[in-house]
Amino acid sequence: MIEEDHVLRPFDASETIPVSIAATIAGVKPRTIQHWCVVYRIGRRIANGPWRVSRPALQMLLDDDGEALRLYHAGDRTSERVRQYFRRAQTKTPQSPQNPQALHGD
């Protein structure tokens, strides 16, 4: 069974940053951030537009916190391990939806 990807789902623009800002934070080139979005699933394209990066997920990757990133990918937004990254990013902490279909709202 393929695990469903919950990166930036539900979508909340306040969680996202452009690739250029993510690159500055990480100290890498924008192309590297785009690569990380695909490989480490820290961002996605919204409605076939530009890449948007989850600031909390980027920080999880930079902190090498694979467990938090795994929880985030699985749709967890309420455990303390994940919530701490939303607080650090000064982003409102979303609630994990009760209805799995709500995870796909773009």
Results as ranks from 00 to 15, higher is better:
A68S: 07
R45V: 02
R52K: 08
I46G: 03
D64T: 11
I17C: 07
R41H: 07
R31Y: 01
I46W: 11
G66W: 14
V39P: 06
Y72P: 03
A23K: 14
L71D: 04
C37M: 07
Q59E: 15
R44P: 01
C37K: 12
L61Q: 14
D64M: 12
I42H: 01
R44F: 09
I21T: 14
H73L: 09
N48Y: 15
R45T: 09
A57P: 03
S54E: 13
P50M: 07
P30L: 13
A68D: 10
S20T: 15
L69C: 11
I46K: 05
I42S: 00
R41W: 09
I33S: 05
I33T: 07
I17N: 11
I42E: 04
N48V: 14
H73D: 02
Y72S: 01
R41S: 04
L58N: 01
W51M: 05
R44G: 00
S79L: 04
G49C: 03
K29S: 08
I21C: 12
R31V: 08
S79Q: 02
G66P: 04
R77F: 02
G27K: 15
S79M: 04
V28H: 13
P56F: 05
S79F: 03
V38D: 15
S20F: 14
Q59F: 14
G75S: 10
A74D: 07
D76G: 02
R44D: 12
A23Q: 13
I21W: 14
V39C: 12
G49Q: 10
S54G: 09
W36Q: 09
I33P: 00
P56H: 07
R52Q: 11
V38K: 15
M60H: 03
I25Q: 13
D76C: 00
A68R: 00
R41C: 04
L58Q: 09
L61G: 00
S20D: 15
L62M: 12
T32W: 08
N48C: 14
V28K: 08
I17P: 03
H35P: 05
H35T: 09
D63T: 06
A47C: 10
G75I: 01
E67F: 02
H73W: 13
I42D: 00
V19A: 11
A26P: 01
R52P: 00
N48A: 15
G43I: 14
H35I: 06
R55V: 06
G27Y: 15
D64K: 13
R70Q: 13
V28P: 06
G49F: 05
I21E: 15
H73Y: 02
G27N: 14
G43W: 01
V53E: 04
P50K: 07
L71F: 06
R44L: 07
G49N: 15
T32G: 11
I42A: 03
P30Y: 03
R70E: 10
Q34F: 07
K29A: 12
S79G: 05
H73E: 03
Y40T: 12
A22I: 07
R70A: 10
I25W: 12
V53Q: 02
A47K: 12
I46C: 03
R45A: 00
Y72C: 06
D64Q: 06
G49I: 02
K29D: 09
G43E: 10
R45G: 02
H35E: 08
V19Q: 04
A74W: 10
R45F: 04
N48R: 14
D76R: 02
R31L: 04
D63C: 06
P18Q: 11
L69S: 00
D76Y: 02
S79C: 01
